[in-house]
Structure formats: structure tokens, C-alpha cells
Amino acid sequence: MKRNMGNADRTIRFLIAVLLGVLYYNGTISGTLGIVLVILAVVFFITSFAGFCPLYSPFGISTCKPKNKVE
């Protein structure tokens, strides 16, 4: 599994996951929408730590900085 997420992308996903978790815990979001957003938060949390987004692969998207090749 090759990383396809840069540091900024990973940080933003992590912050969104934390925000959604806090909003659900406080009761600001609840019901079906709350459950869906918590599941999304879990997915964001996992992908932010793995550095890999499965949805980026089919489209060839990568937010990683290209590695400099030494010649």
C-alpha cells in the first residue's frame, strides 16, 4: 500500500474526525446523521494514520510531495 496522502491532507482529516467526534459526544449531532458522521470520522481517522486513501487510487490522485531523484 503506497502512501497517497500528504501531511496537510492527513492533518485536515484528523482534525475533521476529532471535530465530528466531539460534536457527536456533546449531542450537537445525533440520530441517523450523527451515526453516519461518526462512521465518516472513523474512516477519516484510519486513513489519516495510514496515509492512504482508497478513493484516491482509481483517480490517480496523490497529495504527497514528489520525491527528488538524485542524479
Rank of each mutant, 00 (worst) to 15 (best):
residue 8 A to G: 12
residue 49 F to R: 05
residue 5 M to L: 15
residue 7 N to S: 11
residue 32 T to L: 15
residue 51 G to I: 02
residue 43 V to R: 05
residue 38 V to M: 14
residue 12 I to T: 10
residue 41 A to Y: 05
residue 40 L to H: 11
residue 63 T to E: 07
residue 54 P to K: 00
residue 56 Y to W: 09
residue 29 I to Y: 03
residue 5 M to P: 04
residue 7 N to H: 02
residue 26 N to M: 11
residue 27 G to Q: 07
residue 25 Y to C: 12
residue 55 L to C: 11
residue 13 R to V: 03
residue 55 L to I: 14
residue 43 V to F: 08
residue 63 T to Q: 08
residue 4 N to A: 07
residue 35 I to F: 12
residue 66 P to A: 12
residue 61 I to D: 11
residue 26 N to I: 09
residue 54 P to A: 09
residue 36 V to H: 02
residue 26 N to S: 12
residue 21 G to R: 02
residue 32 T to K: 13
residue 46 I to H: 02
residue 35 I to M: 13
residue 53 C to I: 09
residue 34 G to A: 05
residue 63 T to D: 05
residue 18 V to L: 14
residue 46 I to Y: 00
residue 40 L to E: 14
residue 44 F to Y: 12
residue 39 I to A: 15
residue 13 R to I: 01
residue 69 K to N: 11
residue 2 K to R: 14
residue 50 A to F: 06
residue 71 E to R: 13
residue 25 Y to S: 13
residue 40 L to D: 07
residue 58 P to S: 07
residue 62 S to P: 01
residue 25 Y to P: 01
residue 23 L to I: 01
residue 71 E to I: 10
residue 7 N to F: 06
residue 46 I to L: 12
residue 17 A to E: 04
residue 47 T to V: 00
residue 47 T to E: 15
residue 46 I to C: 01
residue 8 A to T: 15
residue 26 N to F: 13
residue 32 T to A: 14
residue 37 L to N: 09
residue 55 L to H: 10
residue 6 G to H: 04
residue 38 V to E: 10
residue 5 M to N: 02
residue 12 I to A: 15
residue 26 N to H: 06
residue 20 L to G: 10
residue 28 T to K: 06
residue 5 M to W: 03
residue 12 I to K: 04
residue 70 V to G: 04
residue 9 D to K: 02
residue 15 L to Q: 05
residue 58 P to V: 07
